[in-house]
């Protein structure tokens, strides 16, 4: 019988211990945060460290999507990941390291990209990531490198023709951690939103009849529509989604290197070439 009593007590202890662990975790977080802000205050001395680290490694670690046509898509046949984001990443690698192939791509999703960046697994996120005020508290962003707007993807012949026809009874599908989820909830209060781990799962769910429309940035949606002509993008974009490249907070030297690269690309026309290659038309000026 003794054992059972101890079991009971251990259960209580266990739950208590979890709370203590949670507490410790917080302390650590607080510690990390203050250390980071301290680093900011210290200024440039710490800043060049990030670039130095990349150079020492000789390889740029970039988080990109593997499931987003036109931006970052893994092709099972070749094993390559291809898209707009990949070409931009290569240009940044060339700028920093002098070789566009000195790069290692790692798969991120909307859900995992900020944790992976903050854990130091990747130097930057080039993954259809909208610049928002909230995210700026967590990471630093480059200049805008792509201008998207949120829209809706539906099965052809759907009664949904745009944001106007989305009601509380519409089932919307999206990806965990994406801004589009928040936006649609604000535009249509009370709407049902189902969140998936990535866009591929969300699109599979749309095809499987799990919802009425998939929402995210129009550029991503056009990629999906090009993959399956039973689906189309409807209505006008109803938000502005300026994409930025995210780096760990405080790595201002990396931000500068990225911004220099973007400026270079825009000046020598390469940006337009990459844009046209993937999006099919020249960027609006």
């Amino acid at each position: 019988m003794n054992k059972f009593k101890s079991f009971k007590w251990l259960s209580v202890l266990m739950v208590a211990a979890l709370f203590v662990i949670a507490g410790c975790g917080n302390n650590n977080n607080a510690g990390n945060n203050s250390a980071a802000s301290g680093g900011n205050a210290a200024g440039n001395a710490a800043d060049s460290a990030a670039i130095a680290k990349i150079k020492e490694r000789g390889k740029l670690l970039v988080g990109v999507k593997y499931d987003t046509r036109l931006f970052g898509l893994k092709d099972p046949a070749s094993g390559n990941v291809e898209g707009f984001d990949i070409d931009i990443s290569k240009a940044i690698a060339k700028h920093i390291l002098g070789d566009e192939n000195a790069i290692e791509l790692k798969e991120v999703t909307s859900k995992t990209r900020i944790p992976m960046l903050n854990n130091g697994e990747i130097d930057m996120v080039v993954a259809t990531m909208t610049i928002t005020e909230e995210r700026k508290k967590e990471v630093d962003f480059s200049d805008v490198y792509f201008q998207a707007g949120q829209s809706l993807l539906v099965k052809k012949g759907s009664p949904i023709t745009g944001l106007e026809s989305v009601t509380k009874d519409t089932k919307i599908l999206g990806s965990k951690g994406a801004t589009s989820i928040k936006n649609i909830k604000e535009k249509v209060p009370g709407v049902t939103v189902l969140e998936f781990d990535n866009y591929q799962d969300a699109f599979a769910a749309l095809k499987a009849g799990q919802g009425d429309a998939l929402t995210t940035d129009d550029a991503i949606l056009y990629g999906m529509a090009s993959q399956d002509d039973g689906y189309e993008v409807v209505g006008k974009p109803f938000t502005d989604e300026p994409y930025g490249i995210a780096v760990q907070k405080g790595n201002t030297d990396v931000v500068k290197a990225i911004n220099d690269t973007l400026a270079e690309l825009k000046a020598n026309g390469e940006y337009d070439a990459i844009y046209t290659k993937w999006i099919g038309k020249a960027p609006a000026k």
Binding site: P76, V108, Q200, A204, Q227
Partner: peptide, 17 residues
């Protein structure tokens, strides 16, 4: 996103319904 069997299966399934 560990590229094991299930993960790769989903990528192939994603190509076509």
């Amino acid at each position: 996103a560990l590229p094991e069997l299930m993960h790769n299966a989903k990528i192939v399934m994603g190509q076509k319904e």
